[in-house]
């Protein structure tokens, strides 16, 4: 059984939450001593009471319960009191259907974000609707300390300041993306007045949040699914390349079935891709070693031959 002191504390925390949530005016610490049972009597030891109350208040705030400190109207000199505003407290009901909650439960079981409280989040939505499935964790996604504040900043449209590779950056944060094992932030860099991407494991120290609601996110965002050969300033050309049968499936996984222009009798394929970054395209082609060949346009093919010839001669 739980120790009785833990029970006393739990009871006091529950009563304190109820008191701060139902009060029509902010409660001073004297009000709280009077209205919430379980505190040491302040008339016997003011400091003991204050310590217990401070500790409880912090416990509620750490949990995410919004305990606010408010000036009491009409008090002279100004006195302050505590309150939990209902509109700040309640979770708006997302109105989940049973199958939707079930699917979220399974997703949380399969993907774990290191150090983040997925189970508690599920409780607030109504808990696990099905018995545990025994599904092993499929993916553990690494976390960085800046992730949670940046997520909050994106939701609030608050600009952020952080230190990145030795310099201070002021950024309107648009999107967090996890790709190829790393977290990235997409946003607008104020000093450069241009969209930038930041790798979060290169952000040093804390993220400072600015005023919420300070910006609008642009309607069109850079396409995260863009391939390396599509991200560039080169004049776009449609490139054709042949890929051997044994590598064809892998190539289709990368490019999508729409890129396949022809399938030859030996199982090899011809694909077409729009290239606006020639360096990126060359790296992609050479990743196939001698299992792929650039067919057209001639200048792309010549570029590749010249690159390779340079390596042989050098």
């Amino acid at each position: 059984m739980a120790s009785s002191s833990a029970n006393v504390r739990l009871e006091r925390l529950l009563n304190l939450t109820a008191a701060l949530l139902t009060t029509s005016r902010p409660l001073t610490s004297a009000d709280i001593a009077e209205r919430v049972p379980g505190y040491p009597d302040p008339t016997e030891g003011r400091a003991t009471f204050q310590r217990a109350f401070e500790r409880d208040k912090e416990a509620l705030r750490d949990m995410g319960i919004p305990v606010t400190l408010i000036d009491l109207p009409g008090s002279e000199p100004v006195e302050q009191g505590y309150q939990i505003k209902r509109q700040d407290y309640v979770l708006r009901d997302p109105g989940l259907e049973a199958d939707e909650l079930g699917a979220i439960h399974l997703a949380l079981a399969a993907v774990r974000l290191d150090g983040l409280p997925g189970t508690q989040a599920l409780w607030k939505l109504g808990g696990a609707p099905e018995p545990g499935t025994g599904t092993a964790t499929l993916a553990a996604i690494p976390s960085v300390p800046q992730l949670v504040p940046l997520f909050g900043a994106i939701a609030q449209r608050a600009p952020v300041r952080f230190s990145y590779r030795g310099g201070s950056r002021l950024v309107d944060p648009y999107r967090l993306a996890f790709s190829r094992g790393h977290w990235y932030l997409d946003g607008r860099d104020h000093d450069r007045d241009a969209p930038r991407q930041f790798r979060l494991d290169r952000v040093d120290g804390d993220v400072e949040l600015g005023e919420p609601g300070s910006f609008e996110r642009p309607a069109t965002m850079p396409d995260r699914t863009a391939q390396p050969w599509e991200l560039g300033g080169d004049e776009p050309v449609l490139a054709r390349m042949a890929i051997d049968a044994e590598q064809a499936r892998w190539a289709v996984d990368q490019l999508g079935p729409a890129a396949v222009a022809a399938t030859r009798p030996d199982g090899s394929i011809v694909v077409e891709v729009a290239v606006s970054n020639r360096d990126g395209f060359r790296s992609f082609v050479l990743g196939f070693l001698d299992h792929a060949e650039v067919l057209a346009p001639p200048d792309l093919r010549d570029d590749l031959v010249a690159w390779l010839t340079g390596m042989v001669g050098g």
Binding site: A18, L21, G64, R86, L91, P117, A121, A139, G152
Partner: peptide, 24 residues
């Protein structure tokens, strides 16, 4: 009735939920 709704999701809880779902 004052406890008729759970309290709001903290940013870390929200992120845990949405990131796991988005990954799947």
């Amino acid at each position: 009735e004052y406890f008729d709704r759970p309290f709001r999701l903290s940013p870390d809880e929200g992120l845990a939920l949405v990131a796991a779902g988005a990954a799947i």
